[in-house]
């Protein structure tokens, strides 16, 4: 429950709902290029954070997807909506690690 609420805070702080779903970020993301699974793409990761805030439980792949973001910010440079994608994912990672350690 707590994790869902904190995901809501991240969603609001970074205004993730502004995502226009253009997918420009996916094409520059190194982890997507390697894995070709959308949980390893910027758009995928921020939408997983939004779904988390709506109460879904993360599967292994979705969990690993968030944790494997390199923080390289290639996505931020191309995002037309100006979302700080890498920072939002970073905060979500911290949230997951904190929850795991509890």
């Amino acid at each position: 429950m707590l994790i869902n609420n904190e995901a809501k805070l991240i969603t609001n702080e970074y205004a993730l709902t502004r995502c226009a779903r253009c997918n420009f970020c996916e094409s520059v993301c190194p982890t997507y290029m390697v894995f070709r699974r959308r949980v390893y793409s910027p758009r995928g990761r921020i939408w997983i954070i939004m779904f988390l805030s709506q109460g879904i439980k993360l599967s292994n792949d979705e969990y690993t997807g968030l944790l494997t973001c390199l923080g390289c910010r290639a996505c931020d440079l191309v995002c037309p909506a100006g979302i700080k994608i890498a920072e939002a994912i970073h905060d979500a990672k911290a949230l997951l690690v904190k929850a795991a350690l509890k």
């Binding site: 779903r21 949980v39 758009r43 997983i48 792949d61």
Partner: peptide
């Protein structure tokens, strides 16, 4: 093959 809820939801929309 993808069957987990969150990842499936990534295919629920376009632009």
């Amino acid at each position: 093959i993808i069957e987990s809820q969150g990842e499936l939801m990534l295919y629920s929309y376009d632009a």
